[in-house]
Structures are given as C-alpha cells and as structure tokens.
Write a protein that binds this DNA or RNA. Structure first.
Lengths: 200, 200
DNA sequence: TAAAACATACTGACCGGTCGGTTTGACACA
DNA sequence: TGTGTCAAACCGACCGGTCAGTATGTTTTA
C-alpha cells in the first residue's frame, strides 16, 4: 500500500530537520549531529543517505527549486491579459510565501551560499535565468497585446524579481512590520501602473 | 601630526580583514585566526581590541550603518521635486553599490545574522525603520506638493527599499548579468511612473 | 617606568566524517 | 508455518582536525 520505503522516510526526516536547522542558524552553524538529533536518527543513518553535509544541502536546494518550478508552471498558462495575470501570480505567491519565516530564511541561505560555492551557484543560476526569461516573455506578450508600454522586457522582469525578493528580505527582518503578502500585491500593482500602456 | 594612535590603526586593519572574510565566506566560516593572518596581526592583538568575534561583527555592523546614515543625510536636503530627488538618490546609490560585490555581500550577511542574533537584530532594526520613515516622509512630501498620487507613503517606501535590496540580491547572484547600477535607476523610474500623479 | 599594545603557546570544546558492528525486513526453501 | 540468508538500513563510539578564547610573557610608547 505505502510505496515509500523506510529509507526514503528517513532521508526525508533528515532533510526536514536540516532545512529547519539551516534556516534557523545558517549552514555553517548547524552541525550534522544536531540535524541527526533533531531528526531522531543516528549519524550512521545520515551518512548512509547523504555523502556529506554539503550534498545534503544541495539536495535541499534542488528539492526547493523543483517545487518552485512546479508552482510556476501551474500559473504559466492563462488567457487573461498580462497585467491581470501578473497580479494573480503575486496573489498566489502571497499564499506560498506567507507560510513561514523559516521557509524564506532557507531560500536566502541558498542564495548566499550560491555566492560562495560553485556547485550551489551552478544549481541556482539556471533556474534564476529561467524565471527571468519567464517574466520577460510574459511582459513581451503584454507589450504585443498592447496592454503594456514598450519597455525592455528583461529589465521589467528583473524589476519584478527584485520587488518580490526585496519584500521577502524585509519580511525576514521585520515579520510583523507589515502585511507582506498584501504588500506584494499592491506594490506589484504600483509597478504595473508604471508599465501599463497609457490609452491614447 | 598623525592623530590616529597605533591601536586604532590595528583595530581598523582587523575590521577591514574581517569584513572581507565575512563577505567572502560568511560569518561562521571565517575564523579568528584567519582574520588575524589576513590583517597581519596576532591573536593577542585581536582580543586586545575586541571582546569576541561576535563583538567585532557588531562593530562592523555599526560602522557600516553609520556610513550609510551619513551618505543618506547628504542627500536628505534638496529643493527639487520629490520624483527628481528620488532619481538622484538612486543614481547616487549606483555609485555607492557598484563598488564591489564584497561590500554587498557583507550587507546581506548582516541582514541574515539579524534574523538569528537578537543583538544584531536590535542594531539593525532601528536604522531600518529610520530608512523606511525617511522614504515615507519624502513620498508624503511628494504627495503634498502634488507630484505624486495619494498612495500610502509607507507602502511606497517599502516598495522602494524592496526594489533596491532586490536588485542588490540579484547582482550578488549574477554580477555580470546586467548593468545593475543603471537598472536601479531605470526601475526606480518605472516605479515612479506608477506613483506619479496624472496631470488632470 | 608604568601602562598600553602586542605576540605565542596553549586549552578544551566541538565538528565533519569514518568504521566495525547490529538490527530489520523481504524472500527462499522446507 | 518455521527457518536460514542476505542486503539494506541503521547505530554510536571514535578520530583527526579546527576553532574561539585564554594565559602569560614581551615590546612599544608616553
């Protein structure tokens, strides 16, 4: 009935514990022993499933990116005009990111490590470009359909990504400082206002 | 002639070396011995000037924030309309931030540590609010003078901060991916377009 | 000459990773 | 159903090395 083997369950327990640890105290400050204790698993089990602490981190990165990619694909399709579509996406992100500060924290942990570790960087840069291209194409479509003014779509895409990640960053510093989910939506609206084609 | 004592010079050498180390490899992964070697100074000198590794980090945070505060005060005054003033500020930031990836990296290192360490958080959150208030007041002035539409100024301020920090974040991941300095200016212009009051 | 400013050797805790051994569960065979 | 087998899964003591911090002595400066 249950298709997941015992080993897979253990590996998942380790990954969950590691994610929490890395998010809470950072990669370097989180020991393997601590992860094991938190997962209720021995060190032997850890090194049975993962080659090293580093490779565990990579597994986390890849799992997270895969998840993100999936939820992006969900909203990739649509027939509404581009501005409405972007707003809908930001509303969706609201739900995805308002979940837990820990989730956000690990995301930036990945980002920071990418600047230091070549392997992490290689794993992160490709999806990043993918995202950039995704938004740029969306904007281009908006320009083509006449709902957006003719700015450089890549520039606009980088602006959108900036806005989203910057808000996440502020939320990290001051979780109670604002309704960050709602804020993402309204500042996206603001940016769109700047992008929107003036009726002539 | 030279007013700076020998001790102050040593402390500065240590701080410079530490900044580089923390930025390059992160706080936890940068050892005290490594910092000392890089500064050309012994461990004794280190612990003569700093109580602990942690307190050195705090000193770096405070120095950096003070510097930022100073360069902000420089452009606080002005007689131009608010939108032009904001653009001028983003142009100024271009120069300040395009200097070195290391500089940016240490900035985010501070930010991340703030989420983990109460002392760092306390030191960072106050200036953060200060900045937020600064931009909010600037926007309010723009609304009052009629150059901006009547949005929530705090929301606008958080949007501006998001844009700036988000672009920095992307620059960290992909330094050669764009002319990030120019990008800050043009996306600020985009945001301002959304904020600008339509002539009626 | 006293205090400030350093240098060097050292300590104890901790950490990533290893290793020899043990448990567990699925399957074969009787 | 009982029993032997084997590999996957797991355990935890242990090792080499690193790290923040200290103890103590030496030089420099005013």
């Amino acid at each position: 009935m249950n298709e997941r083997s015992k080993g897979e369950v253990t590996a998942e327990k380790i990954m969950r514990a590691a994610q929490e640890g890395f998010a809470q105290n950072g990669y370097a400050a989180t020991g393997v022993a601590e992860i094991c204790a938190s997962a209720g698993v021995s060190k032997g089990a850890f090194y049975y499933h993962f080659e090293s602490k580093q490779s565990l981190f990579m597994a986390l990165v890849e799992a997270w990116l895969g998840e993100l990619e999936g939820s992006l694909a969900q909203v990739a399709e649509g027939v509404q005009p581009v501005p409405e579509r972007l707003l809908a996406m930001s509303r969706l992100m609201t739900g995805l990111f308002s979940s837990d500060v820990v989730q956000i924290s690990i995301f930036f942990e990945f980002w920071m490590q990418a600047g230091r570790d070549a392997a992490v960087h290689a794993a992160v840069i490709a999806p990043y470009y993918h995202f950039q291209r995704f938004f740029a194409e969306l904007l281009q479509r908006g320009i083509d359909e006449g709902s957006l003014s003719a700015i450089d779509p890549v520039l606009g895409a980088q602006g959108i990504i900036s806005l989203a990640s910057g808000l996440l960053l502020q939320r990290l510093l001051d979780p109670e400082g604002a309704d960050w989910g709602r804020l993402l939506e309204s500042s996206m609206q603001l940016l769109l206002e700047g992008l929107r084609k003036v009726e002539s």
